[in-house]
Design a protein around this nucleic acid. Sequence first.
DNA 1: GACCGTAGCACTAACGGTTAGCTTTTTGAA
DNA 2: TTCAAAAAGCTAACCGTTAGTGCTACGGTC
Lengths: 195, 195
Amino acid sequence: MTVPSGRRERKKAATRQKISDTALRLFLERGYDTVGIRDVAAEADVAVTTLFSHFASKEALVFERDEDFEQRLTQAVTGRAPHEPLIPALRREIRSLVRHCTADSAAPIWRMIDESPALRKYEESMRLRHAESLATAIAADPGLSPTTTASRTIARFVIDAHSLAREAADPDAALDEIFRMIEAAWEVTGPSGPA
Amino acid sequence: MTVPSGRRERKKAATRQKISDTALRLFLERGYDTVGIRDVAAEADVAVTTLFSHFASKEALVFERDEDFEQRLTQAVTGRAPHEPLIPALRREIRSLVRHCTADSAAPIWRMIDESPALRKYEESMRLRHAESLATAIAADPGLSPTTTASRTIARFVIDAHSLAREAADPDAALDEIFRMIEAAWEVTGPSGPA
DNA sequence: GACCGTAGCACTAACGGTTAGCTTTTTGAA
DNA sequence: TTCAAAAAGCTAACCGTTAGTGCTACGGTC
């Protein structure tokens, strides 16, 4: 009972990591579509069912680290300095996230994602989830009093900003431009403006 | 060659319609997930391969009519009265589209969509396509001179407006609120404002 | 009216992601 | 040592989707 301390957790994490590493390597070597789940499982030396007990789908193998994304966004809202305005805090976080995924080391992965319809679809559905988490965080902020609609709308806009900036020729410039628009949209939601 | 006039077209359209009607009926009767492609094909009295020659995927059976959506949006931009500002024209069109899919007759279909992850995913990827068409239409407007980023951003925001308003408790009120935000975002994209 | 190209449809068989059902091994604790 | 549960395994399937192949009906042409 209680906490399954020690070895068990480590072994499980190791198995998960091995599967993830193997999958990403094979996908990049041979292409996402040409590598099958059975290939990944064989190369990682696990059963197919084991693979699916660690990852909900083939696409999830590629987006392994996306819980980070969601957490960092909500953290940027709930954990910002007292009296710091909402939008600049979000802008800073989004900028950091965009830089992270436009870095050279991440480029091959994102090229692979952009080329696979299945992966793009999956990313889209992730964005909806992220937007809803962010909306909840914004709505719960004690310093603000946005309507439900306003918080959900701003959350969507912010997620859009990430997606659009990531694809832009000049991500930093695009981000500035988009956040100017978001700032304007945010300001009309309350006569008192951001806290 | 030329146009395969007459009977052939009618027969093809009839087959397509029969498949679509049968599918929607079965989905609503028994649930999207519990009805298989083979069930639909059998009930419509066609082969599975025939079904897939008319519809690209199972989800496409549900969203049969959504070529309209894309066309109506771009039409709202390219076909609006001379000197009519962009955002109000879009707002009018989105309002009409939202009303159409919150109507009582469409309610069961949208409930089904909201309950099926596969259908939600599909809808999400459709939204991306719609946003890109709309962005292209906005960018091509002779009366405006938005940057690429601005037109893509506004397009996303408008698509978001549809999706958010559709789910809101009071769609009309939500739409007003969101479009106030979009209007503000649009105004900061050019010092001269909309044409 | 006979002829031919092609569009539409059918059928079988498979592929690839995913899951259910059940057994075996490993691990932590009594 | 013993036991319960977690983790991993195997088999066999389900389901959406596609390839390959052939048949039939239609439309245009001589």
